[in-house]
């Protein structure tokens, strides 16, 4: 007989996140402090169910489904943490759609078969972990960029400062984005190098280099290199930096969805 823990499905935590998102949306139009507390409660409940699901179902993190669910889980932790830390900001409106999107993609891709060769080696684990951490950074940068653009739009329209969507100020959002980029790039680089080491360990094939997975991860690395160059050499800031980060996130999603040819399954 199944225990309640084993009965937890993707629908359970996705529904909790969706309710939390709905309540935050409600709060936006009809501000009631209680709504935000309840939303946070649902977010927390979703996170709890998410952790239980990942643990009990032993979802292989190295599969596209597993990696997307893990990334969604880390972003949920980010949501709950930030919602407690910066209570005034409407985090749920920005983080939860991303979480729900990743869960949706994970369900669509639905391949949980773990890789067979080398993924348990040192290089395989290093490659997967580093790329996952880099993916977290890219996602946080993406959230900061979206918030930045919304705040920018408000300022462009000269909307009243204390009305409408509560957000962090431009400087804080840019700092958040910058830190996310600075955090992700070395991790991404190290993850890529570990991936190459893994390929050498497995005996690299020429056709592997042209897989969607490799091309997208290399593309992501390239976008990040451009981002850093623009930020620190050309002093590009604000809107342009935010748009580049969003582009990097789009490539990350492509890398996540693509097959795991590069590492034969290991990766974010």
């Amino acid at each position: 007989m199944l225990t309640w823990i084993e009965k937890i499905t993707v629908t359970c935590f996705a529904a909790s996140y969706a309710v939390a998102f709905g309540l935050e949306l409600w709060h936006l139009f009809r501000p009631r402090p209680i709504l935000r507390f309840v939303a946070l409660g649902f977010g927390g409940a979703g996170l709890f169910a998410h952790v239980i699901y990942m643990t009990v179902q032993s979802v292989p993190f190295v599969s596209p489904t597993g990696s997307m669910l893990l990334l969604a889980l880390i972003l949920s932790v980010f949501y709950v943490g930030e919602a407690i830390h910066h209570q005034r900001v409407a985090w749920a409106l920005f983080v939860l759609p991303l979480v729900l999107g990743l869960i949706g993609l994970a369900v669509l891709v639905q391949t949980q078969s773990p890789p067979t060769e080398g993924w348990q080696s040192f290089w395989g684990i290093a490659h997967g972990t580093l790329l996952m951490l880099a993916a977290v950074g890219v996602s946080v940068g993406f959230i900061a960029s979206v918030m930045y653009l919304v705040q920018l739009r408000r300022l462009q329209a000269k909307l009243p400062p204390n009305q409408g969507l509560p957000l962090l100020n431009l400087e804080r959002l840019e700092l958040m984005n910058r830190r996310a980029i600075l955090w992700s790039f070395p991790l991404l680089t190290a993850g890529l190098l570990a991936g190459f080491a893994l390929q050498l360990y497995n005996g690299m094939l020429l056709q592997d280099l042209f897989s969607v997975r490799i091309v997208s991860v290399l593309g992501l690395w390239l976008v990040f290199a451009i981002l850093l160059y623009l930020r620190y050499r050309v002093h590009v800031r604000g809107r342009q930096l935010a748009l580049w980060t969003m582009f990097a996130f789009a490539i990350l999603v492509l890398a996540l969805v693509s097959s795991h040819d590069f590492s034969k399954g290991v990766g974010p």
Binding site: P31, P33, Q151, R154, L155, P160, P161, N162, Q163, L168, N169, L170, E171, R172, L175
Partner: peptide, 27 residues
């Protein structure tokens, strides 16, 4: 004050100006 939005926002020109500054700068 807490259950309605009656105290929301500032109404002096100088306070509104500083509110805008805070929308852009953090520290």
């Amino acid at each position: 004050r807490t259950q309605t939005g009656i105290s929301k926002g500032h109404v002096s020109v100088s306070s509104v100006a500083v509110d805008y500054v805070r929308q852009v700068h953090d520290h």
